Each structure stands twice: as structure tokens, then as C-alpha cells.
Simulated assay, not measured.
Amino acid sequence: MSLSSTDWALLFLRVSGCLLLLWVHGLPKLLNFSRELTVIEDPLHLGAWTTLGLAIFAEVLCPLPIILGVLTRLACLPILAVLLVSLILVHPEWSLAEGQFAWLLLIIFVTVLIAGPGNLSLYGRLPGRRPAPAWLT
């Protein structure tokens, strides 16, 4: 299999976007869980525990399969949901400049959702695996 510059670009986009999300948002929530419970906004009225748990799921667990290129499109959905809730419900007063990091993450993960993981992904390289349907990778 020959790899194109698009495959390398998608790998770079997946890994860099996920590492930014993990480093800036996910790990601080996970490592400071008790403090985060007292400050997290709860726009959907699910309770602080549930809201923080969903945010950690989206910002810590979902980036891992995306980095590997496994269930990539599916793993983008919770991330996009958290970003949209943040931009629309939690911080609707933000100007474009104030919300630029969230908008850039939204652009990155929508691009990954549309394009998929590219050929540099773990799924499909595992022995005995049939190629995954496009919507699942």
C-alpha cells in the first residue's frame, strides 16, 4: 500500500488535535476531578458528576481511539457534542476571538469526522480483520 501526503496529513491532524484536546481540557479535568466538580457548568441540568463524566469521556477517552485510527468517526461525535454545548449553551457570549480555540477544535474534529482516519490507522492492520465500513472508521 502506498501512502499519500493526505494519509500523513490526516495522521498529523488526528494526533495533534487529540493531544491538544487531552492536554488543555481532558487531563486537567481528570487530574483535578474534585475541584472541577465545583466549577463545571451544567447547561443540560444533568448534575455536576454526570456533566463532568461526559466531558472526561469526550476529552480523555475519545481521543485515544482517534489517535490510533480505530472507530475514528464514532469517537469524534462526543467531542463535537461537548464543543457545541460549550460554544452554544455555556459560552454564547464569547466573541470569535474568545472562542477561537473551541472553534479550531471544532474544525479539526469535523474534518476528521468527514475524512476518516486515512490509511495510517490501526484498524484494518490487525491480523484477520476485514476492512471496516467507511462510516465506522
Rank of each mutant, 00 (worst) to 15 (best):
G99E: 05
L104C: 06
Y123T: 10
R73V: 00
W8S: 13
L31I: 00
S4T: 15
G118H: 08
I79L: 05
W94Y: 15
R14M: 11
R129A: 12
L106C: 05
L106P: 01
L46V: 00
L20C: 01
L80P: 06
T51D: 06
L46A: 11
F101D: 03
H25T: 01
L136I: 03
R125N: 11
I40E: 07
S5G: 07
L10V: 08
I56Y: 14
G53L: 05
L104R: 06
L80M: 09
R73Y: 03
G53N: 04
L126Y: 00
L113P: 01
I40D: 09
V82I: 08
I107T: 02
F109W: 05
L61H: 03
D7H: 06
T137Y: 11
R125M: 13
A58F: 10
I40F: 10
L31W: 12
P133V: 02
L122H: 14
V82Q: 12
F12D: 00
Q100T: 11
W103E: 06
N119S: 15
I108R: 04
L104M: 09
V60T: 11
G47A: 08
P127K: 03
I66G: 04
D42E: 10
G99Y: 05
L122Q: 14
T51A: 14
C18Q: 08
I107E: 03
T38C: 02
F109M: 03
A132N: 08
L122A: 15
C18V: 06
P65Y: 06
F57V: 01
F109L: 01
L126N: 10
L71E: 06
E41Q: 15
H45M: 12
D7W: 08
H25Y: 14
P78V: 09
M1Q: 08
L83G: 07
L126T: 13
P43H: 04
R130I: 06
I114T: 01
L61G: 00
I67K: 08
S34T: 02
T50H: 09
T6N: 14
A134F: 07
T111C: 07
L10T: 08
T137W: 13
S5D: 04
A115G: 00
G17E: 04
S95C: 14
L136E: 01
L122N: 15
T50G: 12
L11K: 07
P133I: 09
L21H: 00
V39K: 11
G128N: 04
V85S: 09
C76G: 03
P78L: 07
L96I: 13
L27R: 00
L83Y: 03
